[in-house]
Write a protein that binds this DNA or RNA. Sequence first.
RNA 1: UGGGGCGUAGGUCAACUGGCAGACCGCCUGACUGUUAAUCAGGAAGUUGAUGGUUCGAGUCCAUCCGCCCCAGCCA
Length: 433
Amino acid sequence: MADPTPRIVDLSQHVGKTITVRGWVTHVRSSGKVAFAVIRDGTGIVQAVFVKTQLPPEVWERFKDLTLETSVHVTGEVRAEPRAPGSHELGVTGLTIIGPSPIDYPIQPKEHGIDFLLDNRHFWLRSNRVRAIFSIRNEIEQAIHDFFYARGFLRIDTPILTAAIGERSGLFSTEYFDEGNAYLAQTGQLYGEAAAAAFGSIYTFGPTFRAEKSKTRRHLTEFWMIEPEVAWNDSADNMRLQEDFVSYLVERCLERRAAELRELERDTAPLERVKPPFHRVNYTEAVEILQKRGSSITWGDDLGAEDEALLVSEYDRPVFVMNYPKEAKAFYMKENPEDPRTVLCDDCLAPEGYGEIIGGSQREDDYDRLLHRINEEGLPVDAYGWYLDLRKYGTFVHSGFGLGLERTVAWICGLPHIREVIAFPRMMHRLKP
RNA sequence: UGGGGCGUAGGUCAACUGGCAGACCGCCUGACUGUUAAUCAGGAAGUUGAUGGUUCGAGUCCAUCCGCCCCAGCCA
């Protein structure tokens, strides 16, 4: 016997053989002298069949100790069985209880409220639905690495502990020896720019932190962001990279995670339309469109959630909103030579109301203009000395963007809230488990 | 941080203008040789989020506090 303990997903290769499955009990049903236990091992489920007349009495007796989530080794003959969940079953000949599970295991195959499920997230992870979500998240993460690797990008890991630098909004801080406060990174971008000057094309993939008191379906205080930065790319090149990138991630899930998308009851028709080119609309045009459709937005305002949904509903695939007013965006974005009130940037809005999944821009590469913008924003110039130096010693046109991993996964999975696509979500009111 | 909503058994929820604390699921006991969220019979299970008030009487009305959900803002 080459593999006496195969994974459940591989059982079709072991039909007729006696093997041992190692896993957890997800369901028990008894019918007098025949009893059924469904076993999960993380790769699939299999039904174990206990027949009283064909078992030693002590094995039969042990069946009634199988509570929900008991961990077991079950030995038996593999049979193809269309009636069984998982389409295979095990004619049990042996049972070893590895870890008993008290009867008060909290999660039932029934409906629960979100607060209860999040309190029990360490158990909730064991459900089918969660497994499907994380298979898709994993596919997307792998696709991200494959996409950039194939294009010769270097992955670099930027610091999580930083001096105050980056975005304006809320920072988590902690004491840092004699250096005063350290802050959890909100972005790796500025470091990515330094790396782009060294390596050409780079991307970062790491956790980022925002101490904003936002309580919406689209915000976490800790989330994962992918930030490419490319030397010699202007804003137009940047958007072409974004649409190729996003389209590739969607395509990979459609190709390789169809079963999981089905498990989540995701309508894949809108995903199949996600192909380059994405629609492009200038901020100024967007404001005019929105005003015609009844929005109260005026030039200079950022787009609200309602405005985004209204705008995206016009199109059948993601939309780039380009060149926002300077005041609405970060200091490092390059002024638009065609309209100096605006900067060369883009937000990529996902369809179906999922909103902004990418924010990107061409960076200001002129030393004096960048210094002027830092002062205008009232930022501490000395903290940005090294960043300014990138413009002083061999400045270069460059662009990049940040893709929010959880927003992207939630969109592709078709889930209403991003808290479901990260294993242990961190939100304003949740630090445990 | 604003606006709205909610808090009752382990879970999901009922309980009319204030009048005996309920159902289903789960759990326990028993029956059943092919169950699919098995079925059938029986049983245990409650400081109604907390404190105070009004009342003959409060899950229900009032005040304060605590917790959560949704929407908005900020953003990815």
